[in-house]
Design a binder for these strands. Structure first.
Length: 258
DNA sequence: GCTTTTGTTTCGGG
DNA sequence: GCCCGAAACAAAAG
């Protein structure tokens, strides 16, 4: 699930548990470790306290008095808080035990995982290829960014090096709310269309942040796309669907003719 | 067996 | 260099 709003939710979980010493780090499945051994993860963090966490796009950066934990949740990851005696889930991969409970990185598919940077400079290097966070993207940024790319609108929106945080569901939802066809060349959008797109992006992000997910509302594309016979919540037209670079892309051929 | 899945990276082709 | 699709990573559901 994790796109920008989901990761923001995980950031809030972590933010509620800063300041307490890390009693232990348990790596239940080293298959999620990226560029760090279980031993180094543990020795670097034990006794340290998590500080205010930061999110950039789909990355969660958790400084811990020097070292920085970087989490990427792939398609199935999560970070949740549990009482110390909570039974383990089969997909719990790494557990940070604090005095009054534990933080768990749970991830079925292990497509991404847990990184450790020695300091904030090294952490920044890990995410330096990302574009600006989608929440920080001004309309002028968006105009410049779209104008510079010949590719399709949706592909451009989901390219993390262009802007960070938008995934498959968000991109489709934003295009739908903006009445724009996701297959259009990005650079062909007119100025008013970019304005509409920018407004739709912020509206979708704001509502999704509240829900800590892209809410599957009946009035949204996201709430309609998984029906057996999906129809547009606005006009009732059967939704169009195809694969775009391996991602399922859904749009309304009537509302999003252009 | 097969296909599908809300992410990212790499590779080959145009 | 840009853009695209396919494959790979991995696990589960239908």
């Amino acid at each position: 699930m994790p796109e920008l709003p989901d990761v923001e939710g995980f950031r809030r979980v972590l933010a509620e548990h800063t300041g307490e010493p890390i009693a232990s780090v348990s790596v239940l499945d080293p298959g999620v470790l990226r560029g760090v051994t279980a031993r180094r993860l543990s020795t670097s963090l034990r006794g340290h306290r998590f500080e205010e966490p930061h999110r950039h796009g789909k990355w969660l950066l958790a400084p811990a008095q020097g070292p920085v934990v970087l989490l990427h949740f792939g398609m199935t990851g999560s970070l949740t808080w549990h009482p110390l005696d909570d039974p383990r889930h089969r997909h719990d991969r790494v557990i940070w035990a604090l005095p009054d409970g534990e933080l768990r990185f749970r991830d079925m598919r292990k497509l991404q995982g847990v990184h450790l940077a020695a300091n904030s400079k090294e952490a920044d290097e890990t995410v330096e290829n990302l574009g600006p966070d989608a929440l920080d993207l001004s309309r002028d940024d968006l105009t410049a960014t779209l104008g510079a790319h010949r590719g399709r609108l949706k592909t451009t929106l989901t390219d993390q090096t262009i802007t960070a945080g938008l995934g498959n569901l968000l991109a489709d939802e934003i295009c739908w709310q903006a009445h724009l066809n996701p297959l259009r060349p990005a650079r062909d959008l007119t100025a008013p269309e970019v304005t509409t797109l920018h407004r739709a992006m912020h509206r979708v992000l704001r509502d999704s942040l509240k829900a800590e997910r892209v809410p599957p509302r009946k009035t949204w594309l996201t709430g309609a796309r998984d029906a057996q016979t999906p129809t547009c919540p606005r006009c009732g037209t059967p939704l169009e669907s195809r694969r775009l670079s391996g991602r399922r892309t859904v749009w309304c051929p009537t509302c999003q003719a252009n």
